[in-house]
Simulated scan of single mutants.
Amino acid sequence: MLSPLSGSRIRQTLLNALNFSLVLTTAYMFWKGLSIVTDSPSPIVVVLSGSMEPAFQRGDILFLWNRDSHVKVGDIVVYNVKGRNIPIVHRVMRNHVSSSQQLLLTKGDNNALDDVDLYAYKQYYLNREQEVIGAVKGYVPWIGYVTILLSENPWAKYALLGGMGLLAMVQRE
């Protein structure tokens, strides 16, 4: 009678763990490489609201580029507000450029007012170097709904993880 942890079973478990680790590290390296190429800490973002309709819909995935020294009025940028960790996707409405910095005023296409109320307390413009993550250079519609589903519904995360675990157990030899 074979023990439950025979040599081939341990080897198979270690091989599965190694494959899983390789998938995770490959995804991480791809993300970090993309961050270096685009000069953006978050080179891909998902639109979470309808503030940019009709240009972008909720669930669209945006590809960012942060290598340009300045952005122009009309460009769509993604920025983080001080104290909040949710990126905001809006269009540049005004642009103030000096030799040392670029200040931007943004607004969502579907919003009535500019974004001053979204900025940090007593802040009236975004500093291009400090708060802008990147300018939008491309997008893929609707694919980001998976991310929205997982972030807004905790049960979906558990269902996905459970399904992956079940699949891993079924595929064992």
Results as ranks from 00 to 15, higher is better:
residue 2 L to Q: 12
residue 4 P to Y: 05
residue 5 L to Q: 12
residue 7 G to F: 07
residue 9 R to M: 03
residue 10 I to A: 13
residue 14 L to P: 10
residue 16 N to C: 12
residue 17 A to R: 05
residue 22 L to P: 07
residue 25 T to G: 04
residue 25 T to Q: 10
residue 35 S to E: 08
residue 37 V to A: 15
residue 38 T to D: 07
residue 42 S to Q: 12
residue 42 S to I: 10
residue 42 S to L: 10
residue 42 S to M: 14
residue 43 P to D: 12
residue 45 V to G: 04
residue 45 V to S: 04
residue 45 V to E: 11
residue 48 L to I: 08
residue 48 L to V: 08
residue 51 S to W: 00
residue 55 A to W: 02
residue 57 Q to S: 14
residue 59 G to T: 03
residue 60 D to V: 02
residue 61 I to W: 01
residue 65 W to A: 10
residue 66 N to E: 05
residue 67 R to L: 14
residue 70 H to I: 11
residue 70 H to S: 08
residue 74 G to E: 10
residue 74 G to M: 09
residue 75 D to A: 06
residue 77 V to Y: 01
residue 78 V to G: 01
residue 82 K to H: 04
residue 82 K to S: 11
residue 83 G to N: 11
residue 83 G to D: 10
residue 84 R to S: 08
residue 85 N to F: 00
residue 93 M to F: 01
residue 95 N to F: 00
residue 96 H to L: 13
residue 97 V to H: 02
residue 98 S to W: 01
residue 98 S to D: 11
residue 100 S to R: 08
residue 103 L to W: 08
residue 108 G to R: 01
residue 109 D to F: 00
residue 112 A to M: 09
residue 113 L to S: 13
residue 115 D to Y: 02
residue 116 V to A: 14
residue 119 Y to V: 07
residue 124 Y to G: 09
residue 130 Q to N: 09
residue 134 G to K: 01
residue 136 V to S: 01
residue 137 K to W: 04
residue 142 W to V: 14
residue 142 W to D: 11
residue 145 Y to D: 08
residue 146 V to L: 13
residue 146 V to M: 05
residue 150 L to E: 04
residue 153 N to L: 07
residue 158 Y to I: 06
residue 159 A to Y: 00
residue 159 A to P: 03
residue 161 L to V: 13
residue 161 L to K: 04
residue 165 G to A: 15
residue 166 L to Y: 11
residue 168 A to D: 09
residue 169 M to W: 11
residue 171 Q to D: 09
residue 173 E to M: 08
